Amino acid sequence: MLTLLTYPSAFGLFSASPFCVKTAYMLQKSGQNWQRSDMLDPRKMPHQKLPVLRTPERLLPDSDLIRDWLEAQGADFDTGLSDVQKAQSRALIRMAEEHLYFQIVLDRWGNDEVWPILYDTFFTGIPALIRRPVSNSVRKSVLKGIVTQGIGRFSLAERLDRVERDLEAISAYLWQSSFLLGDHPTAADMSVGPILAAMRATPADTPLTRRIKQDNLLNSYIDRVEQAIPLS
Rank of each mutant, 00 (worst) to 15 (best):
S89N: 04
S37K: 15
G125C: 09
L167P: 02
A10V: 10
N33H: 14
C20I: 07
Q176L: 06
R210W: 01
P207M: 09
D107F: 04
V105T: 02
D83C: 05
A201I: 01
A91M: 13
Q48S: 12
E158L: 02
Y25W: 06
E158M: 04
L231P: 03
V163S: 07
S220D: 11
V134F: 14
A204M: 03
K44I: 13
L53V: 10
N111E: 10
F123P: 00
L53R: 06
A157D: 14
R162W: 08
Q103A: 12
S220M: 01
H184C: 09
R132M: 11
D107C: 08
T3D: 07
V114A: 09
V163R: 06
A187K: 10
A197Y: 05
W109Q: 07
G150N: 10
K49F: 02
S191A: 15
L81K: 05
Q88F: 06
A169G: 11
A75N: 02
S9N: 13
R200G: 00
F123R: 05
I93G: 05
T3F: 11
M199D: 03
R132W: 08
S171C: 08
T124Q: 15
L65W: 06
K22R: 12
F77R: 01
I212G: 01
P46M: 03
G182E: 10
S137R: 15
K29Q: 14
K213E: 00
I212H: 00
L181S: 10
L100M: 14
S9I: 11
E158G: 08
R162K: 14
I130S: 11
T23F: 08
S178K: 09
D78W: 09
R210L: 04
Q103C: 12
I66V: 03
